Amino acid sequence: MPEVFFNGPSGRLEGRYQPSKEPNAPVAILLHPHPEFGGNMNNQIIYNLFYMFVERGFSVLRFNSRGVGRSQGAFDHGLGELSDAAAALDWLQTLNKESPGVWIAGFSFGAWIGMQLLMRRPEVEGFISVAPPENLYDFSFLAPCPSSGLIIHGEQDRVAPPDSVQKLVDKLQAQKGITIEQQIVEGANHFFQDKIEDLTERCAEYLDRRRADIAAGGGR
């Protein structure tokens, strides 16, 4: 898997990029959890989801946001990290000009960043939001949410408690024209300890099902 560096708003960003063998493959970008709590592109959940997309023929990028690993800059409480994510997706799309669709997947803080990126990019056909911390960050920008997606979280999550995630799901499910699927992983904490395989399998099943629907002419 090639190590890559590309230009972000505050300097060079470090990533790992796996191109598809097909020039018209869809693309996916993975967004890691909070940098100040050890979040980086090698987080096990992000790593597993990265290869989930690779195995399905996507061109996939995961990267370290500013100040993480060998990425330049300093933590910016979300604003700069969103700009980094937009720059990363620009870079990915520049390399994949024939790509028919974009997917965004993020975990925790990365889910918040990913759903903001979603609002900026009408070409996104789907998203996977793992343990979005509705209790810690403002998700009111999803008005309306432009794409269907999966929100998946742990039954025993104390960082992003199930009742707070439920508020986000309820709000989004009330919107017309999109479908928000919710899955709760039984016995899982915020980090899906001993449950990452279950999480990955559920995300893979959802992705396969959604892509089959899209290929059959279904909407977003």
Rank of each mutant, 00 (worst) to 15 (best):
M1V: 08
F5H: 14
Y17D: 10
Y17N: 09
K21I: 10
N24D: 13
A25K: 11
P26H: 02
A28D: 14
I29R: 04
L31F: 02
H34Q: 07
E36Q: 15
F37H: 13
G39F: 10
N40Y: 13
M41Y: 09
N42E: 15
I45S: 01
Y47H: 14
Y47C: 01
E55M: 07
L61Q: 09
R66S: 12
R66F: 12
R66C: 15
G67N: 03
G67V: 02
G67M: 03
S71F: 07
A74K: 14
A74D: 08
D76G: 12
H77N: 15
H77W: 07
H77G: 07
E81R: 12
D84P: 04
W91P: 13
K97F: 02
P100D: 04
A105Q: 05
G110T: 14
L117M: 08
L118A: 04
R121T: 03
V124R: 05
G126R: 15
G126S: 11
F127C: 03
F127A: 04
I128K: 09
I128Q: 10
V130A: 01
P132W: 10
E134N: 14
E134Q: 14
L136G: 01
Y137H: 15
D138M: 09
L142H: 03
S147E: 06
G149D: 10
I151P: 12
R158C: 05
P161C: 07
V165H: 13
V165Y: 13
Q166E: 10
Q166A: 14
L168D: 08
K171G: 11
A174D: 06
Q175S: 12
Q183A: 06
I184W: 14
E186Y: 08
G187P: 00
N189Y: 02
H190K: 11
K195Q: 12
K195F: 01
T200M: 01
C203E: 01
C203H: 01
A204Q: 12
Y206H: 00
I214S: 01
A215K: 05
G217V: 13
R220V: 11
R220Q: 05
